[in-house]
Design a protein around this nucleic acid. Structure first.
Lengths: 205, 205
DNA sequence: GTCTATAATCAGATAGAC
DNA sequence: GTCTATCTGATTATAGAC
């Protein structure tokens, strides 16, 4: 049955949506905490509070669960990017994005996927929502990178793609968790250190 | 039977050693190619050309296989470190080590382990050869880091431990493989890019 | 020590009732 | 859609002959 006039969403559809959101939040959390391989579908089901078979009614595979979490992160990122003031200098925009990314990671909300797993890779690539989000985010960051290079605030010798990857890599930088394990510094300090190494480099200035 | 006078190693022991070296080389290669989780013991046995049960006579578990590979890498690193000329400036020593590390990775010889797996972590920590190697390497690098900071060639604002982790992280930097996948640059160029972002940072100088 | 064969376990996915 | 119960395949590890 289609929704009634006024484009109202049926109660049933709302419940469905809410449940899937709950699932994705759990998946996101588990992916951040233990990674794709260590996360089990049983665990996801248990944390959501439903049976595993029910999970498979919503998502056809473990890979699709992870993909859904990545789509969510992409949407989240797009929202953040759109919130950055237009007049902010390009370099500062990039710094803010990296900072946001690392804070997400330290908060245990950044899902981490193995870059080698091929079945997962295939699922992600064939996921239009994910790919669109990824491309849009990359385009926007790419624009900022080129602008920053043009105005001489970012090293123009480096290919823009190398810079883009370097920024993305902060989302899975093991330095953050190692420093956190050491328990010698606050989260804010850790972010500042990595932000410094990322943009200023290790060399003295 | 003990070895005969002259401290000669028995033929049998030599064969054993050679076989274990072959195993570790295979493990090292597979760990570099697919990572610990994706590597199966069957695969290792097949690549070595022996039965799986024979493998387990040499190493008691999959974790111990990985640990043996890490011990090998540590030894390799120590040899490299010892080969660096004493009079080389500290900063340059560090740059050389990072370069060597990344070249090893691009050559498919740098094993990569998941940082979350707890059983693997336990095996590594209880492996004296590995821990000794790790500590010795860290001590040496730590000395160079502090020297470089003292003479003002590396940012003295950063904790030495953060710098050490940042250097170690180059051994599992996804930027290298992503750039390699793009096939737009030679390995030498890729190394130079990442070396530049690591020491000079993204900012223009 | 090496092998073949097999155990034991775990995890992704599904059947079928309600 | 949700559940319980089960299937299936992959993978670590071992038994036991030679």
């Amino acid at each position: 049955m289609k929704s009634s006039p006024g484009a109202k969403i049926s109660f049933k559809a709302q419940m469905l949506q809410a449940r899937e959101d709950a699932i994705i939040r759990v998946v996101n959390h588990l992916l951040a905490e233990k990674g794709f391989d260590a996360m089990t579908v049983d665990e996801v089901a248990a944390n959501v509070g439903i049976a595993k078979a029910s999970l498979y009614k919503h998502f056809p595979s473990k890979e699709d669960l992870a993909a859904a979490a990545m789509v969510r992160v992409m949407r989240h990122a797009q929202t953040y990017l759109e919130g950055i003031a237009e007049e902010t200098p390009s370099l500062e925009k990039l710094r803010q994005v990296v900072r946001w990314t690392m804070e997400l990671k330290l908060a245990g909300e950044m899902p981490s996927l193995p870059s080698q797993n091929s079945s997962l890779r295939a699922t992600l690539i064939s996921n239009q929502d994910y790919m669109n989000g990824l491309i849009e985010v990359s385009d926007r960051l790419g624009g900022w990178i080129e602008a920053a290079q043009a105005q001489g605030s970012i090293n123009p010798q480096l290919p823009a793609i190398a810079i883009l990857y370097t920024l993305y890599a902060r989302a899975c930088d093991p330095v953050l968790e190692f420093l956190k394990m050491g328990a010698q510094h606050t989260d804010a300090q850790i972010v500042d250190f990595v932000l410094s190494t990322c943009f200023d480099g290790l060399n003295a200035r």
